[in-house]
Simulated assay, not measured.
Amino acid sequence: MTPSRRAAAPAAAATLLLALAACTSTSDAAEAPASQWSDLADSAACADLREAHPDLVGTTQTNAINPHTPGYEVIDPENPDRFMGFDIDLGEAIGACLGFDVDYVAVGFSELIPTVASGQADWIVSNLYATQERAAGGVDFISYSKVFDGVLVAKGNPEGITGIDTSLCGLTVALNKGYVEVPLVEAVAPDCTAAGLAAPEVALFDSSADCVQAILAGRADAYMNDINTVNRFIAEHPDDLDSAETVMLDYEIGIGVLQGEHEFRDAVQAALTVVQDTGLQTELAEKWELDANAVAEPTVLSVG
């Protein structure tokens, strides 16, 4: 595991990198900084991308993340000033390919898109499902993974939950603010009413960890998220939690960039394609115990 620094880390390294970039000739702009991703960065494909996007070389791009999703992005338990996970590695690999550094700003899940839209961060690599509604908030998405949702429940699934369906009637579902599952759960209400049952109650929280704690405390009956995330929480609490069902949603996980920043967006898409073509994304998925078969072709979703 190679955790990464927060935005609050000392600025000396970033300052040095910028100073070196300022002294770099145009012909040297294609040279990549040394890093754990040196094999990727030294590839001809990445060198070509740095030549094509010299304005990114030597810069620092701030990633807005919600660091509470095991496997994807969490705070390093051994160092609270660092992050670790699949998305952290993926973002830094893309940065190494394009010649830029990455720092971080941690925000609530519902604040990810507003943080980029307001200029407080440059991109989002944080297990964020790409949807038209979210893109309308001011970002373009570059997809990188398919979505398979799991339904987390108490051990033994005492309520008999079978998915995002009428088995949720009368129950409390814990979800992150801004989750795509919120309207999906709310849409079950008419069917519950037609059956003479109470609609599901949605309890909103700021992080996945809070949702899980609600189930552990008996304040919620279910929680939905990426199946890899659900399985991670079960592994952490094997005596208390179970998976009720896996649901394939019609979404993909995407990297969010500010609308209008087409050069940055297109550069990230091209670098992501290199990462996938080299097999690195699959390797990272295996490293972080995620579904290595969920790789999605890097396509752009934009409403701008």
Rank of each mutant, 00 (worst) to 15 (best):
M1K: 02
S4E: 10
S4C: 00
R5T: 06
P10R: 05
A12K: 09
A14C: 04
L17V: 07
L18H: 12
L20D: 02
A21E: 08
C23K: 11
D28L: 10
A29D: 03
D39P: 00
L40T: 04
C46T: 01
A47Q: 13
L49N: 05
R50V: 03
A52L: 07
H53T: 07
H53Y: 15
P54Q: 01
L56S: 06
T62I: 14
T62G: 03
A64T: 10
P67K: 08
P67Q: 06
P67L: 03
H68L: 04
I75V: 15
I75C: 03
D76P: 13
E78V: 12
R82Q: 14
G85C: 05
G85Q: 08
D89R: 08
I94P: 10
G95Q: 02
A96I: 03
C97K: 08
C97F: 05
G99H: 09
F100V: 05
D101K: 08
Y104A: 04
Y104I: 00
A106T: 11
A106R: 09
I113S: 01
P114V: 02
T115M: 01
V116M: 01
A117N: 04
A121E: 02
W123R: 08
V125A: 01
N127M: 01
A130Q: 08
T131N: 05
E133R: 12
E133G: 05
V139G: 06
D140V: 05
F148D: 11
D149S: 14
V153N: 04
V153L: 02
N157V: 08
E159M: 07
E159F: 00
D165R: 12
L168I: 11
L168D: 07
L168R: 12
L168F: 09
L168N: 09
L171D: 05
L171V: 09
L171G: 06
L171Q: 12
A174K: 11
N176Y: 00
K177Y: 10
K177P: 00
Y179A: 15
V180R: 09
V180T: 15
E181I: 04
E181D: 15
P183T: 11
V188M: 13
P190N: 12
D191E: 15
A194N: 14
L197Q: 15
P200N: 13
F205K: 15
S207V: 11
S207Y: 09
Q213R: 15
G218N: 11
A220S: 14
A220P: 14
A222V: 13
M224G: 15
M224V: 15
N225H: 14
N228W: 04
N228H: 10
E236Y: 11
D240F: 03
D240S: 15
L241D: 05
S243R: 15
A244F: 08
E245I: 11
V247L: 15
D250S: 14
E252A: 12
E252S: 13
E252T: 14
V257E: 00
E263P: 03
F264V: 09
D266K: 08
A270P: 05
A270E: 10
T273P: 00
T273C: 00
G279F: 02
G279C: 01
L280K: 06
E283C: 00
L284T: 02
A285E: 09
E286P: 01
E289V: 12
E289L: 09
D291Y: 07
A292G: 02
V295G: 04
E297L: 11
L301M: 10
